Simulated scan of single mutants.
Amino acid sequence: MGADSLSTTPSASPFTDPPNYGFPHHRLHRTLRNPDKQPVVLVACGSFSPVTYLHLRMFEMAVDYIRQNTDFEIVGGYLSPVSDQYRKPGLLSAYHRVRMCNLAAEQTSSWLMVDPWEAFQSYQRTAVVLDHFDYEINTRLGGILTPSGERRHARIMLLAGSDLIATMSEPGVWSEPDLDHILGRYGVLIIERAGSDMDQATDNLSRWRHNIHLVHQLIQNDVSSTKVRLFLRRGLSVRYLLPAPVVDYIEQHGLYVDDGPTASAASGAIIAEKEKEREKEASSGSGKERAEKFTPP
């Protein structure tokens, strides 16, 4: 069987789904426009508490980069909010975060979607989340068709800010098998964030350099969910930092008025994995399990 061909018979799901879950694919382009291109689906994993214009802008920057620098064709884009069990300080409930992401995707974009699979269950590692997308799109849906009807395997790629690559290059934060799975099998598009040194970070990940795509911001944007929450706690306006439907939702539900302690996304990831490490050691007495998840702020 060729690398781009697919079996048309779905196998039993290897994943446990939340109650009443259905994989969203209403905006997934099921047919390639250009049969010479490789179909790609972008997945951004994050807290999205709340989702900001920068989260959405990341997808548009990725589109421009892929059109100009690769032989890929984007057929879908997904926001995948983390579970409440991520345990990041001040993390709003998945119910509200998913609803805000849906408002942002449906009312401000013509192609983005929100997958709640990760949000409404136990904490899932990034590698497992990408496997889930691979299974749903390539096994259950049968991949992407060419105009002539040939089935192609859609490549799943992680989309994240450059602070992600910094944690990946830091020894002991991510497990080596997960790094190889994410960067070796799937690949990542890294969007430049203000104040980050992408070149230094990628030097430490040189074995996967061919699957790491660095996207520079031509217009700098340093809006973050952390800053937005700080504004809201101080009673300051966040309009034009977030999509208007998200601002309206926050105001209607009185969210983030008392957000509690804040932490960077990187420290939130480490906190979550430290908890998992303690639980594992308590139950099995086995060795250290390293942090495997990171989300853009």
Rank of each mutant, 00 (worst) to 15 (best):
M113V: 09
S5A: 15
P147Q: 02
T226W: 04
N20S: 10
H213G: 03
D134Y: 00
P261R: 07
G142P: 04
S206K: 07
Q200L: 12
P296C: 07
S47G: 11
L241F: 14
E292V: 05
P35H: 03
G184W: 01
V223E: 06
T9K: 13
A12G: 07
S110L: 08
V247T: 08
P243R: 06
A244C: 06
Q85E: 11
I165C: 10
T108N: 14
A269W: 12
S286Y: 12
I156K: 13
Q200E: 11
I219V: 14
G77R: 04
S13Y: 09
S83I: 12
A272E: 04
Q38L: 06
T16W: 02
W117L: 08
T9F: 01
T31E: 10
G143M: 02
A105V: 05
L183H: 04
N204W: 04
E118L: 04
M58G: 15
S80I: 11
G287I: 08
V63Y: 09
A201L: 09
R151T: 13
A269P: 09
V75T: 10
E118N: 15
P81E: 04
S49A: 10
I271M: 13
I219D: 08
T202M: 10
T126W: 01
D259S: 09
G235S: 06
P81W: 00
E73R: 06
R193E: 05
T8R: 15
A266G: 07
Q68P: 07
E279L: 15
Q200P: 05
K293H: 11
P39Q: 06
E150P: 09
H216K: 12
R209V: 12
Y186W: 01
D64A: 14
P39C: 06
I270P: 00
T16M: 02
Q85H: 11
P35W: 04
S196Q: 10
M168E: 03
K88C: 14
S264P: 07
R140W: 04
H55I: 01
E292F: 07
D199G: 14
F72T: 15
L164H: 14
A194Q: 09
I165T: 06
P245M: 01
P10F: 02
D115H: 03
G2D: 08
S110E: 13
L189D: 08
Q217L: 09
M58Y: 15
A3R: 15
L6H: 07
A272N: 15
E289V: 14
Y256Q: 10
T8A: 15
A105K: 11
W208K: 08
D71Y: 03
I144V: 06
E292K: 09
M113T: 12
S283N: 12
H55N: 13
E150W: 03
E289H: 08
G142V: 10
G268E: 09
E273K: 12
L130Y: 02
D258Y: 14
P89K: 01
G287V: 07
E170V: 05
E192R: 13
P261M: 03
R125C: 00
T9W: 02
E277K: 14
E273L: 10
L158Y: 00
H25N: 05
Q220L: 09
L54M: 11
A160M: 11
S110M: 07
G287N: 12
F72M: 14
E192K: 04
I156C: 03
M157E: 08
S237R: 14
A194F: 15
D199A: 10
P24Y: 05
L32M: 08
